[in-house]
Write a protein that binds this DNA or RNA. Structure first.
Lengths: 336, 336
DNA sequence: GGCGGCAACGTAAACGTTTTCATGGCGAGT
DNA sequence: ACTCGCCATGAAAACGTTTACGTTGCCGCC
């Protein structure tokens, strides 16, 4: 029993294939009763339109592609969840290609998506201008996510690292902390750089006499631990530490604990990301939460708009998704 | 500039479309030099075959679908990673549909995949026999993952909860613990039920005089905390606690700590899953690690075999992916 | 030298839709 | 009553491939 085609339905309902197509799509140009007869015949035969045949003529796949780097844990799941939800709401399918870690693999994956998708969600560390120019079919609607490229040629979306960092510094300042250390992320990492920028900006604008004190780190817990040891050696001793991510904050906290320093009474600590673990460490970590799912769904929305109106040029549109302050014990805020 | 078609390439290379198709696919029936000329023309025009047109005639989409429930965190990412890697190795694309939490949504998603995929990876709490019979196109190769259905009609793959739980109980017994409490997962959850079964089996076969002591829980940290309080009230007091997942183990550990009980000196604790947090709690949690990525890639392998040889019936094949004991401090094992 | 066979290549059908255009019927307006 | 126009319906083209089948030319063999 091969799958039923539109011809089978037409024969069953004693009409032409054209009428079947009309009845099952917009439904205009067909009498109510013939339409009903056709629907009955279709469901009787369990007819489901052949997607490829439809694509061939309509030039639409009703599918969008997501090209992602090698991602771990919470971030990836949340991102996909957001994308998937928004895509489903628009009746679109989701073709994902993940875990390609070099530029060649990404380019190959990109080529392979050609013609299988109506639009592309692209997040790739290799996505510089040249790469895009070379590999991206320029008539394909695309939204860049968290790429280092802020260029005006593409539509982009990224998390507001800058704003999040500013929020955190303002929070620490409001609590009375004045000497605030920042622990950097790996050099070359864009998120890390933006967070540092936000730290410096907030400090400069809200507390010009507070020095910017920056220690090295690479997002790993160990580097946070080492930074914590350096913090202890600083004179005068800092009031607070703001790590570029939670894992470093946790490592730093361990270093302070090992040295007998009380957090947050003697030194406040805060991180960035709000990983699930952040609320479980002792003391619970004050941090910045980013709604990753929202990043995904907003990107999908943006892409959807581009697909629906291909003529209105949206290149250069650049949105940011908000970051939110999550106050817990480690920053020394009075509990309410 | 619309995308180049095979006709354009044919014109450019001054051959017929048939020769282009031959040269670009198997390459037989075409002279070496014409073949080269065709390839040149193709790359000059940036020709990439129209996937839908090809699908229409070959009846193959080179895509597999993954239908997943609403999944969180690590599990989802690892699963997708495993699937994606194995699929890419076979030159297949991955269409995912996730986050459908009721049976109707799952059925709709399943219908929508009709004809877009060559095979299906299905993990759904709603996938009972009736649901599958009703919604699954029976000529579509399918692999069931972690479904409650062990029936012989489908090809299936699941994690060895049973074996993992046995490993843990044997570990605890080997350390000299005799009164081992088990904290259940939510009722109706298949993973939880299998873990409990493994606990009971191991206890019965290795230490028949040890009683099976089972407390209620629902996988949440809070339920673990409550179970921990019940543990404290038991007389004689248990040696060890084996929670059906890590979060409950962590909750239980908190309850014991709050009561001033030392872990593992007075009571050993262990969990299941090896969530990232497990190594960071104090003391670090002994648990069972499941290679989720392997679950994904093995499922993909199984599906690939089904697709490649559609005639050999593989229904009823049922494999399990191993679970592994991860010994940390919380079980009281001597450190090496 | 004619003929069979084989290899390279071209022609055209087929896949299952959507959509344009043609056709017929029927109601309304004069 | 005749015609105009609209509306439901059908016929057929088109989308871009693959592939079965025909055609051509060439080589070798009798």
């Amino acid at each position: 029993m091969a799958a039923a085609t539109i011809k089978d339905v037409a024969r069953e309902a004693k009409v032409s294939v054209a009428s079947v197509s009309r009845a099952l799509n917009d439904g205009r140009g067909v009498t109510a009763e013939t339409s009903q007869r056709i629907r009955d015949a279709a469901s009787r035969l369990r007819y489901v339109p052949h997607a490829a045949a439809r694509t061939l003529i309509t030039r639409r796949t009703n599918t969008i592609g997501a090209l992602l780097p090698d991602l771990y844990g919470e971030f990836f799941s949340e991102l996909i969840r957001g994308i998937d939800l928004a895509a489903r709401a628009r009746g679109l399918h989701l073709l994902v290609s993940s875990s390609h870690d070099d530029a060649d693999a990404a380019a190959a994956a990109l080529r392979a998506m050609q013609g299988r998708v109506d639009g592309l969600l692209l997040m790739s560390p290799h996505a510089d201008a040249a790469f895009l120019q070379q590999n991206l079919p320029h008539d394909l609607p695309t939204v860049l996510m968290n790429t280092r490229l802020a260029g005006a040629d593409y539509c982009a979306l990224s998390v507001d690292n800058d704003g999040g960092a500013r929020l955190m510094v303002e929070h620490l300042l409001a609590l009375g902390h004045r000497r605030i250390v920042f622990i950097q992320g790996p050099s070359g990492n864009r998120d890390a750089a933006e967070r540092e920028l936000g730290y410096r900006e907030a400090l400069a604008s809200h507390s010009p006499d507070s020095p910017a004190i920056v220690l090295h780190g690479d997002f790993s817990e160990e580097s946070g631990y080492r930074a914590g040891q350096q913090v202890l050696a600083l004179r005068p001793r800092p009031d607070a530490v703001f790590a570029a991510n939670d894992m470093m904050a946790i490592g730093c906290m361990a270093a302070l604990r090992d040295a007998g320093i009380c957090v947050p009474e003697e030194i406040a600590i805060s991180g960035f990301d709000d990983v699930p673990m952040a609320r479980y460490v002792t003391p619970p970590l004050t941090t910045i939460q980013v709604h990753i799912a929202e990043l995904g769904s907003q990107a999908m929305e943006l892409l959807g708009e581009q697909i629906d109106n291909p003529d209105t040029v949206m290149a250069g549109t650049h949105r940011r998704v908000n970051a939110e302050l999550v106050v817990r014990v480690s920053s020394g805020a009075p509990l309410v």
